[in-house]
Amino acid sequence: MSSFTVAALEAVADTIVQNKELLTSLDAAIGDADHGINMARGFEAVRVKIRAAAPGTDISGLLKLTGMTLISTVGGASGPLYGTAFMRAAAAAQGKATLDPDGITQIWSAALQGIKDRGKASRGEKTMLDAMEPAYEAFVEAVKAEKSLVESLDAACEAAKEGIEYTKTIIATKGRASYLGERSLGHQDPGATSSYLMLAALTEFCRSQQLGA
């Protein structure tokens, strides 16, 4: 499970690094043009740290290492936000040697709450929560309907994509984009986009491993 978790986190890190330009250009439109650069710097550091982690480091330990690395390397608001999400996820994953859909639900719920606590934000403020929270809800619903893990993740990805579209229709009230007021309309939120990209990478990873297919 340990090497599996490392590979899953690497897939997430790879997608962020590959989408550095996209995230930065989205942020240039309504923010300070650093989301892609910051996130790529953070996840490049994560890649190095998790590869160097002691063999046998458990799921919780790897998630914690990811969170701690993000809070000290990203630099922008996404550092403490995603960092807190991974650290809360680590706490929820403690003692878990494997992950089933129920375990993933618990971990995801803790991560989501971490972002809400840290950002003092809620849905509808043009933030990462507009993708992540509907995605979580779609996942929970799919798991309840006894869909497979990959099917449930696919449902979550769809909901996250709709969430990104929704961010184009609302005004930012949190973060740097809030200075723009109505001029933030029509633009998709970079944080919602990076959340979706991570989720999509995780979903593709699980599909490639033929998990719960």
Binding site: M68, I71, T73
Partner: peptide, 8 residues
């Protein structure tokens, strides 16, 4: 680089 570091 420019940014804030919670560890620091």
């Amino acid at each position: 680089s420019i940014g804030t570091d919670a560890m620091r």
